[in-house]
């Protein structure tokens, strides 16, 4: 059921604006803005993933870079094996790399899902600050592993050289690649909206507010939280796989704790728990980065000020500012 609230209207405008961006860029003969718009769409997917855990489940994960990076490495490793014609595994059976995006996405989802299952299983035994820190710790483990593991480039990272392929689409064409990211973004937003409005989502929100009450009606918050954490991680990994394809490059940088912080920034800048929050957040972040980055070498100082301003004075982020407080059903 779509009610035409102020927020829904705003969401439509945002989606259309993002969709229009590359076409405007083409009209202005500024192809770089297509890349920027693609970047926004891809990073927004990561934000949508984290938003599910953070906004809906109240799970403040400070380690989502782990999943973002795992998605990226899934793409990078599979593609590099395919391009070098070296099987990933020769015994007991032969396993080859691939440049098919669909396969890569599937592997990224699978790997990150398993990782999240493991990490979540241990982390969700804790709560509050402990949860924040243990997710950070797991991400740091993977980060240091990636830096020092020599097989896939270590700190130098891994170049893909050619963009992976999707049947029926020319992925090297910037607008086509943008459309892939855009469609996936819309799909994950739709998916998270469905979760939000489902019985599962209701249970999740109830668990955030009161553990015991939920347990008395026979629902175990642990299972619900773990499921949410895994789904959230998988969406973020999908974004990582696309990000690798956008840059034609993966590196441990994608796994660093700064990346976890940035994904969190997208969510909060836009508005925690808001469907389109991560889209606005990612767009704003990229804008600050590319506009201020060209003006002053102290641009991160200004980024800090903007962030601080949003946290202190614009609770609910940009969407909250524009569309007012979230209406609870």
């Amino acid at each position: 059921m779509v009610r035409l609230s102020k927020e829904n209207g705003l969401n439509c405008v945002l989606a259309l604006a993002l969709l229009a961006a590359p076409f405007v860029a083409t009209a202005l003969d500024e192809p770089f803005y297509i890349t920027l718009a693609t970047r926004v769409a891809i990073l927004a997917i990561a934000g949508v993933g984290l938003n599910l855990a953070l906004g809906l489940g109240g799970l403040v994960s400070f380690g989502h870079a782990a999943f973002f990076g795992l998605g990226g490495y899934a793409a990078g490793i599979l593609a590099s094996h395919a391009l070098n014609y070296e099987p990933i595994l020769s015994s007991p059976f032969e396993l080859n790399g691939t440049t098919q995006m669909l396969v890569i996405w599937f592997v990224a989802l699978l790997v990150s899902g398993l990782a999240a299952l493991l990490i979540g299983f241990f982390s969700l035994r804790t709560s509050g600050v402990y949860f924040i820190m243990i997710t950070l710790a797991f991400a740091q483990m993977i980060y240091y592993f990636a830096i020092s593991w020599p097989a896939y480039g270590g700190e130098d990272g891994l170049s893909i050289y050619v963009r992976n392929v999707l049947p029926g689409v020319n992925t090297m064409d910037p607008i086509s690649f943008f459309m892939i990211a855009f469609v996936l973004l819309m799909l994950v937003i739709l998916f998270s909206s469905m979760i939000k409005n489902s019985r599962f989502g209701a249970a999740l929100q109830a668990a955030r507010q009161n553990d015991e009450r939920l347990a008395t009606v026979g629902i175990h918050p642990f299972g619900i939280r773990l499921t949410t954490f895994v789904i959230s991680a998988m969406i973020t990994a999908l974004s990582g796989a696309l990000f690798a394809d956008l840059n034609r490059f993966v590196s441990p940088d994608m796994l660093a704790w700064h990346m976890s912080g940035e994904i969190m920034v997208f969510v909060i800048l836009g508005g925690v728990g808001r469907l389109f929050g991560p889209v606005v957040g990612a767009a704003l972040f990229i804008l600050i980065e590319s506009v201020f980055g060209g003006i002053s070498e102290y641009w991160m100082f200004y980024l800090g000020l903007v962030l601080l301003g949003v946290v202190l004075y614009a609770r609910g982020g940009v969407i909250g500012f524009l569309a007012g407080k979230e209406k609870h059903d």
Binding site: E30, P31, F32, Y33, T35, L36, R39, G157, F243, N247, R248, F249, S251, D253, M254, H258, E289, S290, G293
Partner: peptide, 16 residues
């Protein structure tokens, strides 16, 4: 010192 940012700037400098 971020690889992803360097890639983005390179794209911008070449394309724009």
């Amino acid at each position: 010192r971020k690889p992803a940012l360097a890639v983005q700037i390179a794209d911008k400098m070449i394309q724009s």
